[in-house]
Structures are given as structure tokens and as C-alpha cells.
Amino acid sequence: MPANERDDEAALLALFADLRAAEPLPPADFLARVLADAETEADLRDRLAATPEVWRPATARPRRSASLARRLREGLAGWGAAAGGLVSAASVGLWLGASGLATGLPGVGSGMALVPGADSAAQEFDPFGGLDSMTYALLEPEAAE
């Protein structure tokens, strides 16, 4: 390190020492404010401790882990929901299968044409069957002429 840099660093260290030595005492009113804060916080905690738990704000309540009974109950409910889902899926499958059979039965409407296996009913469906001649002309002008 060059001599002038050493001098500069020495001067800086001397400045640090000056500043450390010139440390002022903290003002009394500042210390009084800090102590007053401590008292206020302690009073608040005392009041909170004396307040029945039901009246405390939600954020002040300690979090608790779920009890064993609750976890068991929730676990069983989860399995119940899963089982219910399986039953529902099986029901839909049965319904779809039965629908395919049902389209061949007398008295079954054209709505069943949407069910797979009901091709014959779909072929009979005429989308223009209910249109009047004016609407038909709009759709196929050349044919109307």
C-alpha cells in the first residue's frame, strides 16, 4: 500500500475514533418514552391475559394442531367421499349401458338418439321438418325459385 494511502487510512481510523469518543448520552426524554412504551405493552398484555378467550381477536389466539379425533373424522370423511365418487361413476356407466339397450324399446323418445348405439333414431331425425316455406327459401334460395 503506498504511503499516502496508508496516511489516508490512518486519518480515517482517527476519524472513527473521534466519532466514537464523541458519543453523546441519550436524552432523558427519549429513555422515558422507551420505558413508557414498555409499560404500555405490558399493560396491554395483562389486559389481554385477563380477557376471556372468546372475546379475543382471532389473530391473538394461538394456533393449535388438529386433535386425533378430528383428524380421524376428516380422514374417514375423505374416504367416504372417494367411495361416493366411485359409486357415482359406476351409476353413470350403468345408465349409459342401459340407455343403449333402451333405444330399441317401444315408447322411447328421440332424445335417446344422443346416446351411443341409437343410430337408427338419429337417421330418422329431420332438422328442417318443422320449418315453413319462407324459412326454407332463405336457407336455399335457388331451390325456392
Binding site: E23, L25, P26, F30, L31, V34, L35, A38, E39, A42, D46
Partner: peptide
Amino acid sequence: AGDRAAARELTLRCAPVALR
């Protein structure tokens, strides 16, 4: 735990450091 004298001692120890 509710000891107010402890707060006074801590104030004298810590507040000057924070202020400095």
C-alpha cells in the same frame, strides 16, 4: 413475565445502543 424493573434495566442497556 410482568417484571417492570427488568424493562427499566433493559432500556438503560439497549436503548442507547439503538439510538447510537
